[in-house]
Design a protein around this nucleic acid. Structure first.
Lengths: 334, 334
DNA sequence: CCGATTGCCACAAACGATTGTGGCAATCGG
DNA sequence: CCGATTGCCACAATCGTTTGTGGCAATCGG
């Protein structure tokens, strides 16, 4: 019932007839078995007792002394979003491998919430922050953090002036455009996602640039903004069909929006891809489930790199932003 | 560039000409404005300076002294799973409201990983744990935790001997069965999910019990186990169609598996629900997207209650497990 | 053979909070 | 008017680490 108070360093030292300092140095020496802080035999005794007694250093005492927490905070729009959840998994995996722990919070893409969550994390003295929700709307806060010297990196979305690791979204948009044109489509609709986010902006820009390059008149493509989720996709698809019935290809910049669109196409009895081709973005697990043509973005890798760059910054480095390469995944819908 | 060292309590006290103890008591008194630890005017001065100087108590120093961290650890099978992500959001929301922070980790439903992640969290001195991945396979570890006096609760899945908050899965299964029979179905397939988990076991048991009660011969229903995700659903559906072509209704105990099944039905040109009715479970966002008939389980609420019960335990209470009531959501597929 | 290294280890001062104890003045009760 | 209470506050110990400094013996170089 009563959770026994964990063994302390002092207790360990006492049992060993040593001073806490020696035990501490040996235990925290990365060299481990052959640390130079004690005689080999002493080192062995320390390691053995630490192991058998199940000693766990109290991280609070350590952090208090060292002023480092080995904790990184992560802010995402929403963990329910498969894409961000996957990126976070990548972050967490990389962090765990270095004995860092992570804490994650949802910002719901609203700036004051982002600020609130981030400050909360900072109150808990995280060593650095990783943002998955950067956008034009919260750029001021990010800039403030830079000014305050708070180490941070961005993943998934980029904004000017901050180190980020993102998918080459522009290129991703081009890939889709090329594929749709190659398969004979001529009247395009873009479900463009949330305004002010680089994922939305870059993907549609890439799409438009490639179309232009391929000689498609700008008049033959219509854009609809909204959100990244399924309901947003439904709504956008409805508007698209209403405003331009001649549409024969739809590019949703996010798989979830694409699935929403797919729902209305099915409901209308529109055949996919025969009547209208549909493509998404990200290659989430669901995309495979519904045979959706999409672009694979290396989400997991993005998280790992985002963490790695943060560590570089924490170490005093000044890394460059990274662009990960996307890959076209052709399935049944386009 | 250099992150200025945060203001300390001692510094505050010095500027105020008071002792740290007084400042500490006033600041941490929930009564706030009218705490009885100092003269009203003094209290006001303290509060004012704390505010204007942006004082943030160092949580490590506090935890070291109080032996409490105001941190709870959460273990889920996988955050990519919308269901668990939503439950976690509920946990986190409830925790934040009480100034608790949460840390979450994936166990991938493998027992040694669960143990590893949980121990890691315990090393960081979380006050308690919430498990979203309880199953027959890791029951021994959960029992061990009970023995060690580690406060914990379960969400989503239940297991004997541990306090949990789950959906009334048995009842949920009954709801689907009743609906399918009422709409004239007679040959049933169940995509049963991961063996050893209560969500799988209870939902199919409820389904079978209700069918029996409605007079459906046990021979007219076939069960297929596997996993909870989309690929598992695909595979199960394929087997189902092969083994029993007369099937006219499928109950997948999870929306994602259902969507996998939906994919193969579409691919085979089988009309839903005309040829085969399909129902899922959980009412995830995707279910609405594909017009899937399903059972709504209160995921967010589950998280909040799971946290609340943990707090009760931390306070020395001994709460009962809770069963949240599900709700049938009829859409297009059944 | 003697002074300088080197190997091994202990002392003690932090880190920044919380909290038991106690002191002094002003006010109260009778 | 006097002893007891109350209001307001300070002292100092403590939580469990890390780390600068230094001491003693054994070994080394010349």
């Amino acid at each position: 019932m009563s959770a026994a108070r964990p063994i302390t360093l002092k207790a360990l030292a006492q049992q060993l007839g040593l001073s806490p300092s020696t035990v501490s140095r040996v235990l925290s020496d990365p060299a481990g078995r052959d640390s130079k802080w004690a005689a080999p035999e002493t080192t062995a005794r320390i390691l053995a007792l630490a192991e058998s007694s199940g000693y766990r250093p109290n991280p609070y005492a350590a952090s208090l002394r060292t002023n480092r927490s080995n904790l990184v905070g992560v802010i995402v729009p929403r963990l329910q979003d498969y894409v961000l959840a996957t990126i976070y998994e990548g972050i967490d995996e990389a962090a765990l491998a270095q004995d860092y722990l992570t804490m994650v919070s949802n910002s719901l893409d609203v700036p004051e919430r982002q600020r609130d969550k981030a400050e909360r994390l900072l109150s808990h003295r995280v060593d650095g922050l990783i943002f998955g929700d950067a956008s034009a709307a919260n750029l001021p806060y990010l800039d403030e953090l830079s000014g305050r010297g708070v180490p941070h990196t961005l993943v998934s979305r980029r904004v000017p002036g901050h180190v980020s690791v993102t998918c080459d979204d522009h290129e991703g948009g081009r890939l889709i455009a090329r594929h749709l044109v190659a398969s004979g489509r001529s009247c395009f609709g873009v479900i463009a996602g949330r305004p002010g986010t680089s994922t939305s902006i870059d993907r549609t820009a890439g799409f438009l640039d490639e179309l232009e390059q391929l000689g498609v008149p700008r008049d033959d493509v219509s854009l609809i903004s909204g959100g990244f989720d399924t309901p947003a996709g439904r709504e956008a698809a409805l508007r698209l069909l209403a405003e331009r019935p001649s549409t024969d290809a739809i590019f949703a910049v996010n798989d979830f929006a694409a699935i929403g669109a797919l729902g209305v196409l099915h409901a209308r009895g529109i055949r996919v891809p025969d009547d209208i081709a549909l493509a998404g973005f990200n290659d989430t697990a669901l995309a495979a489930g519904v045979e959706l043509t999409t672009v694979r973005s290396p989400m997991h890798e993005m998280g790992k790199r985002g963490y790695a760059l943060l560590v570089e910054i924490l170490g005093g480095g000044t890394p460059e932003s990274e662009l990960l390469t996307p890959e076209l995944v052709i399935r049944a819908t386009a």
